[in-house]
């Protein structure tokens, strides 16, 4: 791991994405610059079709952009082949999607330890790390349940545990609360926030302003472009103001 010390966790440089060719070409992203630091949660907001999900899959190396560069922990994704991208997903990134995050044939703890086992960890060590991660999302006692036996919120919490297990640093969440009711969604966001505050970085794609507000920075996306952003003050500054 030779990440440059001053590199952010994630950097998007002029990332663009076109689908199709010529007259039927669709522009999903048109030159997006974005950085995510450790301990920072960035929300991406925008109407459907604004390109926010595409941005996330590009950041996670699931989709190759047609232009620009994605740099994760100092590694240029355009330089990596499929196998190396898979390794990146095992070691650095964790996805949390709206639903169907878990492999239904695996128990909660097996789902969480999946990336570690894939990465060649010893089974016992992987399971211990997975149990710790489940503990953090308060689901240790559900470790041996299958996803079908977990509520939607519990499933998302397992997904968050999996996204951060084994010291993985970048959480990419695509509408993680989209299928949940308001208070359950809030609990999931609280977990997400806690993992970020503990040192991870994250992107949260959502169309719900209330959920986006959990982020340190909200980036507004329209027609594949960033049209603005809003940054919150730190908690300390907030405390100072209300004192």
């Amino acid at each position: 791991m030779t990440a440059a010390t001053n590199e952010p966790l994630l950097r998007l440089d002029g990332v663009s994405m076109h689908y199709g060719h010529g007259a039927t070409s669709v522009i999903a992203l048109a030159g997006v610059d974005l950085t995510v630091e450790r301990g920072e949660l960035v929300a991406i907001m925008g109407a459907s079709g604004s390109g926010k999900s595409t941005l996330l899959t590009i950041a996670g190396g699931l989709t190759r952009p047609t232009g620009g560069e994605v740099v994760v922990e100092g590694r240029w994704l355009s330089e990596l082949d499929a196998r190396q991208l898979a390794t990146l997903r095992r070691r650095t990134l964790g996805f949390v999607f709206q639903d169907f995050n878990l492999v239904p044939a695996l128990t909660a703890i097996e789902n969480v330890s999946l990336p570690l086992e894939l990465d060649g960890w010893k089974l016992r060590k992987a399971r211990r790390a997975a149990r710790d991660a489940l503990n953090v999302v308060e689901l240790a006692e559900r470790a041996n349940h299958f996803p079908d036996d977990l509520s939607g919120g519990q499933q998302q919490r397992v997904a968050i545990a999996r996204a951060v297990v084994g010291g993985r640093s970048l959480i990419l969440a695509d509408e993680p609360t989209g299928a949940l009711d308001s208070t359950t969604g809030e609990m999931v966001l609280r977990m997400l926030r806690a993992r970020v505050d503990a040192g991870a970085g994250g992107i949260l794609v959502t169309h719900d302003p209330r959920h986006a507000a959990w982020a340190d920075r909200i980036v507004f996306l329209r027609d594949g472009r960033i049209v603005g952003s809003s940054e919150t003050e730190s908690v300390e500054a907030l405390a100072r103001r209300s004192a």
């Binding site: 030779t2 440059a4 330089e79 894939l118 990465d119 960890w121």
Partner: peptide
Amino acid sequence: TAPAPGPSGPRLPRRSRA
């Protein structure tokens, strides 16, 4: 700068068994 080396790292012998 020159791109950082990929995350390929050393080959992992246990992977195929896992």
